[in-house]
């Protein structure tokens, strides 16, 4: 495996790295991490099992097995990436393999929120630009410098304006993507809400 995994912490404003292209629409989270690897009580060893079944099928030719991609950290995907199961194990496995950001045509909702919650920015680009990047990656290395402040990706040959949900962008820049404490800052409001909800009063048999 690679160098020791360190989870992201705090503000995330720049991500620089080599792109790894993975072609295919509707790549689901069962493919990213098959269910048998969910039998665990922590995420530590998931990195080596990412895309396990697809990789076996491709017998060493899967992008995640290619020597030239071993240091890549920016994943470039097509549409509806991460559909299916809500398993956070999927982005955790990608992150532990070395992925720090994902650029795609579109992402499934739950996968997207999981990525945000663990510090992986997901950017979107139109189909033709994604294909342009993927074609470029076929023959050469693409190193991108992603600037979240400007939502911009730069390289020697290609420059892109990346799209990202404004709320996500702000959370990465402020560090609030790791959100538990931000949520708890509103403790009084949470308690007020609890007492105001109609069903709390009439659910005397609740639990």
């Amino acid at each position: 495996m690679k160098t020791e995994f360190k989870p992201p912490i705090g503000k995330i404003s720049n991500i620089n790295g080599q792109c790894i292209s993975l072609i295919g629409n509707d790549i689901d989270t069962d493919r990213i991490i098959p269910a048998r690897f969910l039998k665990c009580v922590n995420f530590d060893s998931l990195g080596e099992s990412v895309f396990e079944d697809d990789r076996k099928t491709f017998k060493g030719k899967h992008p995640f097995d290619l020597e030239e991609n071993k240091n890549a950290s920016i994943l470039v995907v097509n549409s509806n990436f991460g559909c299916g199961s809500s398993r956070e194990h999927a982005p955790q496995a990608l992150m532990r393999w070395g992925i720090k950001a994902i650029i795609g045509e579109s992402f499934a909702d739950i996968f997207y929120s999981n990525c945000i919650a663990i510090g992986i920015p997901c950017f979107t680009l139109p189909k033709n630009l994604i294909e342009e990047i993927q074609n470029y990656c076929l023959n050469q290395f693409l190193f991108l410098e992603i600037d979240l402040k400007k939502s911009l990706a730069k390289s020697t040959d290609l420059n892109f304006n990346l799209e990202i949900k404004e709320s996500s962008r702000k959370m990465f820049l402020s560090g609030e993507w790791d959100g538990t404490l931000t949520l708890l800052e509103n403790e009084n409001l949470i308690e007020n809400k609890f007492t105001q909800l109609p069903y709390i009063k009439f659910n005397t048999n609740f639990i």
Partner: peptide, 26 residues
Amino acid sequence: KVSTLPGGSDQIFIGLHLIHEVTSPQ
């Protein structure tokens, strides 16, 4: 809705939370 968070998302109270063995240990 409890609040609008600094990033602009909504903070939503969850009335019922269900858990199981696969996604809760971590």
